[in-house]
Amino acid sequence: MLRYVYGNNLDRYPTLRDTMFLDRAEQFSRRLGWEVSVNSQGEERDQYDVLNPLYVIWELEDGSHGGSMRFLPTTGRTMINEHFSHLTDGVLIQSPLIWECTRFCISPRADRRAAAALVLGGGELMDNFHLSHFCGVFDPRMERIYRLYHVDPDVIGSAGEGKDRIGVGLWEMKPEAWAPTLRRLGIDRRTSIGWFNRSFNRTTPTEMPLAAIA
C-alpha cells in the first residue's frame, strides 16, 4: 500500500523508515554513484530530510520499503533553488502550487508495481492539494524508467558528464496517466483514495444510500 508520511511521523513505521534509508543508500550511493553521505548504519540521509519533508512510500507486503520519494514546498528551502538554480535557465522555481520531488527511489526487492505506485502517489498529492507541478533533480540514467511509466520529466536543464550528469526536470500528472497507472498497479481509484485518506486522517465518504437520493 501507499503511505504518505511526514518526517516527524516516520518513527511510527520503524521498519519502513529504516529500509527506506537503506534502499536510498543502495540506489543513490552504490548503484548511481552519487556523492551522497551514507551513515554508519548504512543509511543515506541529507540536509533536506531534517526539514520534515513529506515522504510518499510504497510499502511491500512484509512491511518494508518498496519505493519512495520526498516532497518539500518550493516556498521554503529546496535542493533545486539552493544548488541547481544554474540549471533552470535562471528561473527561481517558487510557488505554493509547485512542490519539489527528490530521492525517487525503487527498492531492489520491489516488483514493477513500485514505480507505478509512486506515480499514483504523486498524482494524488497533485489532485488533493490542488498543485500544478512537481520539480526535481534526477539522474538522467533514470529517464528510461520514467518513460516506461509515462512520467518522463520535462528536462529544464542538465549538467555534468557520465555518472555525474544530473538533470532538473518537471513532472505533472496528465489526465491520461491515471488509467494505465492504476491498471499496472491492479487497483481502482477508490483504493488509492482510501490509502490517501488513511494517511491524512480523512474520512472516506460513504456511498449515499439509494433511498436518500430518490
Binding site: D89, I93, D154, I156
Partner: peptide, 17 residues
C-alpha cells in the same frame, strides 16, 4: 524552444513573484 510544460512552470514562477 522549450516544452509547453516548462513554459507553464516559468509562468507559474512569474505569477508567484
Amino acid at each position: 524552444e522549450i516544452s509547453e510544460h516548462t513554459l507553464r512552470v516559468y509562468i507559474e514562477a512569474a505569477r508567484h513573484k
